[in-house]
Write a protein that binds this DNA or RNA. Sequence first.
DNA 1: TTCCTTATTGCGAAAATTCCCAATAAGGCG
DNA 2: CGCCTTATTGGGAATTTTCGCAATAAGGAA
Lengths: 145, 145
Amino acid sequence: MNYNTTEINRQLRKSGFRVTPQRQLILDAVYKLGEHVTPEAVYDYVHRIAPTLSRATVYRVLHFLTEQRILAMVYMADGHLAYEMAGAEPHHHLVCRTCDSLFELPHSVLRSFRQTMDTQYDFEIDVSHLSFFGHCTDCRDSTGA
Amino acid sequence: MNYNTTEINRQLRKSGFRVTPQRQLILDAVYKLGEHVTPEAVYDYVHRIAPTLSRATVYRVLHFLTEQRILAMVYMADGHLAYEMAGAEPHHHLVCRTCDSLFELPHSVLRSFRQTMDTQYDFEIDVSHLSFFGHCTDCRDSTGA
DNA sequence: TTCCTTATTGCGAAAATTCCCAATAAGGCG
DNA sequence: CGCCTTATTGGGAATTTTCGCAATAAGGAA
């Protein structure tokens, strides 16, 4: 997966937003760092290149890029938030509340569900990434033990 | 909706956990405060009754009771977490990333999806509460404008 | 290229959440 | 009822995330 800087920039400007070096650098950091990128990891990355870039900006820009559907938010097992490029092949998580395991869920499983939301509720579910919490094979029975 | 203190206590002890006044008070607070109860609201409530009960305990207990499936976690539109009794009639949220609106989603919509996860992945999705992020009717088209 | 408007940033303070660890107190057992 | 083990708590410090506002700088227009 790669990303089209020019197109993204054009899109942002068209919506009245500005393309700043900070935004570009932060987006680049998420891209380079791969999946499940934490704000702190982004900060470390960009801080090396732009020492004055503040933590507040990292948080703000990650949130902003998520709103613009350029990034996707990922709820991690430890309850923290992470981010990744939204354009990547969608994959979802089953997170076990008991053992904190993370299972990947193929996107195909979500298709029909999303379709229903779309047609019946006119709500476009953001399927860049979803996390479902629950209990995995090993833990689902051991609760009442 | 009411809750069965005796049964909950029995269940906890059976699993080797302890029933403390703090846990009971916090559970009671969530029950009394209703839906979408924030940690801070819980703290305010319990602090009046038990001034030494610490914030750390509030957070720990809320997390703990969620693990025990006595409470359910709710992702609010502003990104914060809230809690509510897990035994209540399940309802879910569609949260618009653009305008932060919250739409209620009847539980019935989730039935077949949950079934699929259960049979095909042997994963028991916690359906006490789910939040889906995306874009509502009013906002879904206005993105590229 | 310069000017103007106003979206963004930086910084420091505030708020929210988690951590650490010694002190406390459930509750099982005799 | 009292003892013991160890799950929990309290409190403060550490960490994470958000906020407020003055200073900065995109980028459209002249």
